[in-house]
Amino acid sequence: MRLLINILWNVFWGALLWRIYQSFNHIPRHSSIYIFPEQDLVLNDVGINCLQRNYAKGALSKPVVLCADLNSISFPKEKRSKEFIIVKVSKRDLKKIIIYANFFAKMEFHTVSLDKPDGNRSFLANQFAGVPSTDIIEYCIFNKI
């Protein structure tokens, strides 16, 4: 029972935090939100370039990127605001926002991560050694859009 209460409490906090970040950063309703929870430069780099490409060809509206560590994104700083709405979120808040988005199965939220349930890094590394990680990331996370 304690677990149930704990989850619902975290969901409540996640919802509240998201509303605060949304209004402080003027994030439009119905934006596509991409959460970058990992400090993996290759993963984040492929992820952000994929978003940029799809935004440029009109397949995405201006993406919102939520990230705890802006240094883990190598996309040129001067071009960032033109292509994305980048929001720095503390690690703790990011975790709660993920719980909230996950709980309500929010379709506009996407997590750029290869960990379960989206992927399994160690399996990929063992089974597909030699395959460019960019291919794996694009296929696993972005469905090569």
Binding site: G130, C140, K144
Partner: peptide, 16 residues
């Protein structure tokens, strides 16, 4: 499988 579509997509990659 973690995400069925990921698994289906992976088998399309030539190197696999």
């Amino acid at each position: 499988f973690w995400g069925l579509y990921a698994h289906q997509n992976l088998i399309k990659i030539e190197e696999f």
